[in-house]
Amino acid sequence: MQKEVLINFDRCLGCRSCQLACAVAHSTAGNLFGAILNGEKPRTRIFVHQVGGQKAPLNCRHCEDAPCIDACIAGAMHRQEDGTVTNVGGEQQCTACWMCVMVCPYGVIRSDAAGTMALKCDRECRDEAGVPACVRACPTGALVYAGVDEYSGRRRVDVLARALQQVSGNF
């Protein structure tokens, strides 16, 4: 089954460890101290937000009918075999037109530091066990990498699907 990074909202403490881990996983050094010592500036692709007292991370949902894929004028945004939606590692190169930024309903595609390409959760951070960096980093288990069913059955699927539909309209 395709796995997703699922978010258990009640557990997030807002520590931003996921953000840091994501950035580090996308650094050349691949580890925190190394990246710092090299003076690297890797960017995170998961974002911790707060609404009232509720803190939670948001990252790409790898939507089934991903609007960013439709929008990409370069043909760079594509879906990989495992369901990952990404603009890297495909045939075409991102051209930084921000069409994908314009249509992502979660606001989780962003520019790189130089403004030369769009960055998003590309799951290029998984360890040997295939677990993404943000999930490994979360100290409270607010992030879970699992098949949607494995996680907590239909309820969550409904919730996600409903949220998705309402947030993004009927893409």
């Binding site: 909202f9 974002f47 937000h49 707060q50 609404v51 509720q54 939670a56 948001l58 309903p105 979660y106 606001g107 989780v108 919730v159 409903r162 949220a163 309402q166 947030v167 993004s168 309209g169």
Partner: peptide, 30 residues
């Protein structure tokens, strides 16, 4: 696109805090 009520988010939207709006949307349906 969705036409959902957005007036309550006007401050966040005006200040560029899109992330928290996205999260609100998400949470509303949690």
């Amino acid at each position: 696109k969705s036409g959902r009520p957005a007036w309550t988010y006007r401050r966040q939207l005006l200040e560029g805090r899109a992330g928290s709006v996205a999260l609100s949307n998400f949470l509303t349906f949690h």
